[in-house]
Nucleic acid binder design. Structure first.
Length: 110
DNA sequence: CTTCTGACA
DNA sequence: TGTCAGTA
């Protein structure tokens, strides 16, 4: 039923800052540096989804490990690419499995 | 809630 | 450079 968990809940920046234990200003800076792109209401208020929250947690981990914002942006980009490649690999494996199950084809004897 | 500016280690 | 406080 769920295509993808792309954020069931939406949070304001004050809630997110509370949840992460950081300042609202930092979260806005991450967005300015291209680390994430939360949704906006028609009035311009940021709306953070659950996936945005997951990204923000990653940012906190990477910063604790000593990376700067530029490094964090690079890692995040590589991680989304990696996830996309993994999904592609899984689809390819499933396709190969179907091919093997239907082998050999009927009436293919000499 | 938003943006911007400045100070700190 | 990233974080935080104050402002409009």
């Amino acid at each position: 039923m769920a295509d993808q968990d792309e954020g069931r809940g939406l949070y304001a920046i004050s809630v997110v800052a509370d949840l992460l234990g950081t300042g609202q200003q930092n979260i806005r800076l991450y967005e300015r540096r291209g680390l994430l792109t939360p949704g906006r209401t028609s009035g311009g208020t940021r709306q953070y989804s659950d996936s945005d929250l997951a990204v923000l947690r990653r940012i906190g981990e990477l910063l604790d490990e000593g990376l700067n914002l530029a490094g964090v942006a690079k890692v995040l980009e590589l991680e989304v690419d990696n996830a996309r490649l993994r999904r592609q690999l899984e689809r390819a494996r499933a396709r190969n499995a179907r091919l093997l199950d239907s082998y050999p084809p009927a009436g293919q004897q000499e």
